[in-house]
Structure formats: structure tokens, C-alpha cells
Amino acid sequence: MSAFLAIYLREMLILRRRILRQAASWAVSPLLYVLTFGCALGATFQVGGRSYLEFLIPGLVAMASMTQAFAIATEINVARFYFHAFEEFQAAPVGRLSYVLGETLAGISKAIVAIAIVLAIAWLFGVRLHYGPFFWLAVLLDSFAFASLAVAMAMLVRSHADQTLLTSFIITPMGFLGGTFFPLDGLPAWARGVLNLLPLSHASAAIRADAFGEPPRALHFLVLAGFSAVFFILACSTVGKARD
């Protein structure tokens, strides 16, 4: 199992070299959302008796968790198609499980750093929420699911351009529709039904519930755990497909 640590350590060493640039880039989107949607637009209305800014922050946490965990796919593709460093793993005695575990854990770690930045921005804007164990459990399941999906997709794509398409067609729409910016309750039943199929909808709901000090709903955690398991198994089964 030391191979899984090697994969993880490599990603963390690269992150350490880039951390200042990376942290600055991770702060840009949440800061813009907080300023435009949270402060400017959100000042005119409330959601469920809370300010829109308070409603928005858990959604941004869920979105940051998803996008930064999924971004591990880009790192893998750079290693595969640009630096060819992926060949080093293919030629080494590294099992599929070790590889997927190492990359998934790296995706989760990056997501946690990105979430810390979102929470720091929230604190700077005066938002004080509850960050209990269920908040972090939901964050972990959300990032685990999307990091696993990222590994699977990174193994299946044939070029870096394909990866960009996946982000445009899957991650960006989910980021906007998965209960991050607006409550799903106000939607027609059919739309709510469709959006409830998205893992991010359940992550947003679970994170928001704990942030607001509400009791957790098992359904959200079960759905996230289910997606995590399916995506992780998918990732393990696709590692061999990256060979030509």
C-alpha cells in the first residue's frame, strides 16, 4: 500500500510548490459570488428567514468541494498527456486500488483547502455558521464522490480537450443547478425530481442543514455514499483502460 502514499505524496508536493497561486485562484470565484449574489443581489431578499449570503455560503462550500475534487482530473491529464509521468505509475508495481486511492485522496485534500478558503471569505463577510461533524462528513463524501468520478473520467478521455468538455457539460451545469444558489423547494415537482438525482443537490442540502444547525437527514448521506461507492468502483475498473 506504500504505492498509494507515493501517488498522494506526489500530488501534495506539486500542490506545495503552487500553493500561493492556487489558493489565490481558488479564492476568485467564491469572492465574486459572495460580492455579486450574496452582498449586492442578496441584500434585497431572504431565503427561509435567513439572509441570502448565509444561504449561499453552504452552497459555495458544496460547489468548491465538487469542483476542486474534480479538478484532480486535470492534474492526471497533465501527467498523462503533457509530462507523460503517468507512464511511471503504469510501469511500476502499483495496483489499481492504490492508484485510485492516492489520486482520490489528493482530490479530497485539495477540496478541503478550497473549502477553507470559502469559509475564510464567509468569516470576513461576517457569516457565522455551524460547522459540525455532519457538515464535514457531507463535505468528505461530496469530494470523495467527485474525486473518484474525476479519476474515472481522466482514464477514459483521449485528450486534454475531452476533459474540458466533460467539465463544461457535467460540472459547470451541476454547480449551478445542484442547490447551490437557490432552494430547490420552489421548483416544479418534475424539475425538483430531476435535480434531486444530482449528487451535488444532496451535498448542498446536507451541508446547509448542518451549517444552519438543523438535524441531518440520512437520505442525503446515503445517496452521497452510494454515488461515492459507484464512482470509486468505476475509477478502479477504468485504470487499465488508460493503456493503449
Partner: peptide, 17 residues
């Protein structure tokens, strides 16, 4: 794989490390 070493045609080192 444990018994082999490989030097590929492409440079496949991690440039950032």
C-alpha cells in the same frame, strides 16, 4: 514490473518536482 526498470523515449519526469 518489480523486476524491470524502464527509460521511456519521452522524458516522463515530474518537471515541477
Amino acid at each position: 514490473k518489480r523486476l524491470c526498470g524502464l527509460v521511456t523515449q519521452n522524458v516522463n519526469l515530474d518537471g515541477e518536482l
